[in-house]
């Protein structure tokens, strides 16, 4: 089972919800947690994994053999991103425009193009104290494309799943999505089975909720909503969810003690144990919807 926690607007509480959900789920499932916010991953601040391995990831960029190249220009024509240019007798490759699709390599009639790994980030993996298999993608500073890192992150399989003393547990994957509603969010949702939207009852929260809800609809994914900082703002989110038939699965009121605990690196369910039951209930309702 694969659950994505997304929001659109940043700072609504995706990581607050996803980390607590993971901790509660770890009591019954074999949990794999993927921090997909490769531009600024922060779930590790709350789940405290011992990051044991690091692997470089990137895209394959073209390198042109100037001896074999006839400057026919087919590579430049096929490139949708203008990452390769042929002017006169010169071939230029702009690595930072390349999406690593490999079309130029395939189309070159002279087989003059080879591919070379251009590192754009790393994937860190490890185990949390409660036995959650944790992985995060981290994009290098100056890079603009997170999607290739996300593709690799999603492929990651823990080498040794945490040992359990009871019967083998069902695997459950939780993906903490990046903010926004662009390609990295789409890639995070691709292949998932449920999307949990974390929003706040403000016009900005609603605006961005509509955008990510539209992505989930494209994927035909069942979804539910958590309203964080419930009680501030207005009730437009409630109205929207009623119209869209989006179930509101949990409300988290704004509380200073929660904010202070999060700021000190605690998860919500650790800081406010009464939420443990609420999150178990949330997980059960999500699982029931996935299995429906």
């Amino acid at each position: 089972m694969r659950i994505v926690v997304a929001s659109g607007k940043g700072g609504t509480g995706k990581t607050t919800v996803s980390t607590s959900l993971a901790q509660v789920a770890a009591e019954a499932y074999s949990v794999r947690f993927l921090d997909c916010d490769v531009e600024a991953p922060n779930a590790a601040l709350f789940l405290h994994p011992a990051l044991a391995t690091q692997r470089e990831v990137g895209i394959l960029v073209p390198r042109v053999d100037t001896q074999a190249c006839t400057h026919c220009g087919k590579c430049a024509e096929v490139c949708q991103f203008h990452a390769i240019a042929v002017v006169g007798q010169t071939v230029l490759v702009f690595d930072d425009l390349c999406h690593g699709c490999g079309s130029c390599t395939l189309i070159c009639p002279e087989q003059a193009i080879s591919e070379q790994l251009s590192v754009i980030g790393v994937i860190d993996t490890g185990l949390t104290p409660e036995g959650i298999a944790f992985a995060q993608g981290v994009m290098n500073v100056g890079q603009a494309m997170g999607v290739p890192i996300l593709r690799e992150l999603k492929k990651w399989t823990p080498e040794a799943m945490p040992a359990t003393c009871d019967a083998p547990r069902q695997p459950l994957e939780i993906r903490d999505a990046p903010p926004g509603a662009s390609c990295p969010v789409v890639e995070t949702m691709r292949g998932a089975e449920f999307v949990l939207f974390v929003t706040e009852p403000t016009p900005f929260g609603l605006h961005d909720l509509k955008q990510v809800a539209a992505i989930a609809r494209e994927f035909d994914l069942p979804a539910g909503v958590v309203i964080n900082r419930d009680g501030i703002g207005d009730d437009a989110i409630d109205t929207y969810c009623a119209v869209q038939n989006l179930p509101i699965l949990l409300r988290i009121p704004l509380e200073r003690r929660i904010a202070e605990a999060l700021a000190s690196g605690q998860t919500l369910v650790d800081a406010a144990p009464e939420y443990r039951t609420l999150f178990k209930d949330l997980l059960e309702r999500i699982v029931a919807r996935m299995n429906a």
């Binding site: 991103f81 203008h82 990452a83 240019a85």
Partner: peptide
């Protein structure tokens, strides 16, 4: 032709005028 390019417009326009 680069007017509506999603990226690399400068590269495409430069190739075009070349």
């Amino acid at each position: 032709p680069a007017l509506s390019a999603s990226g690399g417009a400068g590269v495409q326009a430069a190739q075009f005028i070349a």
